[in-house]
């Protein structure tokens, strides 16, 4: 039985099946989960089988060009109707696509005579239908030393 048939058959029996590529520790790992149990459980007692399966999944990811776009962690969740939901991180740690995006969208806001000493970081969160700046209140409260304030946006988008 090949691995695709095996995973599809599991999903058809209403088991939760995920096939993944993970690079969170900056070392790409290819594996699967069945009912949220990670294939890494095989490593200790059944390293041969784990290696064999990992190699198949590794080859599949590499040969299918699915990570060609330099995305990060990617998972395929096979549904009981045998459709599939893919989730992927936009950026890859290994190929540093995050840094590339930031550099190619080089953007800076300048604030003159505004005291940001209580703020080190501004966190911005975008979800499906919401956009939030966590430090909104603090930003709006930032005091200025005098009435002269310069607010300049400097951006280069290629």
């Amino acid at each position: 039985m090949n691995l695709k048939e095996f995973f599809l058959s599991l999903a058809a029996q209403n088991q939760i099946v995920e096939v993944y590529f993970n690079e969170e520790n900056r070392d790409p790992v290819f594996g699967f989960k069945i009912n949220n149990i990670d294939s890494e459980v095989l490593i200790e007692d059944n390293d041969n089988l784990w290696s064999k399966i990992e190699n198949v999944i590794n080859d599949a990811f590499l040969s299918s060009d699915l990570i060609d776009k330099d995305e990060g962690d990617t998972s395929y969740f096979i549904q009981s109707d045998l459709s599939c939901i893919k989730t992927a991180k936009y950026f890859s740690w290994v190929s540093e696509t995050e840094q590339f995006w930031i550099e190619s969208h080089d953007t800076e806001f300048y604030f003159e005579n505004v005291d940001f000493s209580e703020l080190d970081i501004i966190l911005i969160t975008k979800e499906y239908d919401s956009f939030k700046i966590r430090e909104e209140i603090e930003l709006k409260k930032c005091s200025q030393a005098n009435n002269m304030m310069r607010f300049i946006l400097s951006t280069k988008i290629y």
């Binding site: 045998l82 939901i85 950026f91 806001f109 310069r150």
Partner: peptide, 23 residues
């Protein structure tokens, strides 16, 4: 008297329905 801010890091993901052709 002049501060500036810039993007330091990004962390995001997306989901899509697709066919399971990986293997």
């Amino acid at each position: 008297n002049e501060d500036y801010c810039f993007i330091m890091s990004m962390y995001g993901s997306y989901s899509e329905k697709t066919s399971f052709t990986l293997l």
